[in-house]
Amino acid sequence: MVAITTVKAETGTTELPEVADPSKVAPRDARELSRQFFDRLATLEEGTPEYQYARNTLIEMNMSLVRYAAGRFRSRGPEEMEDIVQVGMIGLIKAIDRFELSREVEFTSFAVPYIVGEIKRFFRDTSWAVHVPRRLQEARVQLARATEELGSRLGRTPTVKELAELMCLSEEEVVEARLASNGYTSASLDAAIATGEDGESVLADFIGADDAALELVEDFHALAPLIADLGERDRQIIHWRFVEELTQAQIGERLGVSQMHVSRLLSRTLKRLREGMLTTR
């Protein structure tokens, strides 16, 4: 159980729940607490200590969403996974800054597409297997020096934020520089790997394939807020057609309209959802 108390803002009119360790809040509890924090956040002035506390707590409470989204990329190795999580955090922060309770959508459904999208954008924009830009070559050298300096000073591995402050770069640029520093090491797909009992395989034997079920989960998360934005009648038609699997004629009988009219309504709604999904991607 995470300890939660209440602390009043300086104005005396806004009360904020104080969570002892936001990162340890269970996902189920985080959903309810997040609604309270978003409700308070909307009434606070940006830049105030109370606003920063509410925003930072939301970030820490919902870090499990980043770990969930990053899990699908676990095959890339522990070192690169750290970069993926850092990029996913950027997506989480963007989702928090843009979320509104008036959307009447769970924050988890709203945030996951932002997080996954940021990770995909990271891979798309930073594919340097053939060529590494000069600015990243220079940043790689600067990153190595900053990591060594901070590591000696702090006695631990520095965070991306600490490196960014020392290097006078954005956190995104530090993440890019880190990936560039890893880009100079490659392995052949024909490289031999010992499998035990004198057995041997090649690296290519361990290359997996995309799991279609994971793509489906991502699509569900992207589709949920789009369906929530539909009118009540359109949502009901979608439910009848694809959940209860009624025919258009049966739907028409329930609505008191013709099958042709149901077909037009359904086509219009599906077109809207399809365009929304393409925009999200």
Rank of each mutant, 00 (worst) to 15 (best):
S170W: 07
G88A: 11
T126D: 10
G155W: 07
N56A: 10
D210Y: 15
S267L: 09
D205C: 11
E200L: 12
E171S: 08
S109P: 15
P158F: 06
L150W: 03
A224I: 00
A177E: 00
E82G: 01
D234H: 02
D125Q: 13
A3D: 06
S102Q: 08
K24H: 01
R145M: 05
I193N: 11
N56P: 07
E15F: 00
M89P: 00
M63K: 15
V202W: 06
P113L: 04
A3F: 15
G155K: 00
L179R: 14
E80R: 15
A139H: 15
S267G: 09
I227Q: 01
H221F: 14
K161G: 05
H131D: 13
F122S: 01
R40Y: 01
K24C: 00
R268N: 11
N182S: 13
E215T: 10
N62L: 12
P225K: 06
V132K: 04
R145E: 13
Q52H: 04
T195C: 09
R31F: 09
A194P: 12
P78Y: 03
F73L: 02
G196Y: 06
G12Q: 10
G71I: 07
S263K: 12
Q86C: 00
H221Q: 09
M167F: 03
C168G: 06
I115S: 07
E106R: 10
L226T: 13
Q236G: 02
K94Y: 14
T269I: 02
A30T: 02
E148V: 13
A192D: 01
I59C: 12
G256K: 11
Y68F: 09
N182K: 14
L189E: 06
T5E: 10
T185D: 08
V160A: 00
V85H: 08
A180C: 15
D234V: 00
R274M: 08
E118F: 14
M63F: 05
V87T: 07
Q86T: 01
R272T: 11
H131E: 14
V7S: 04
T195D: 03
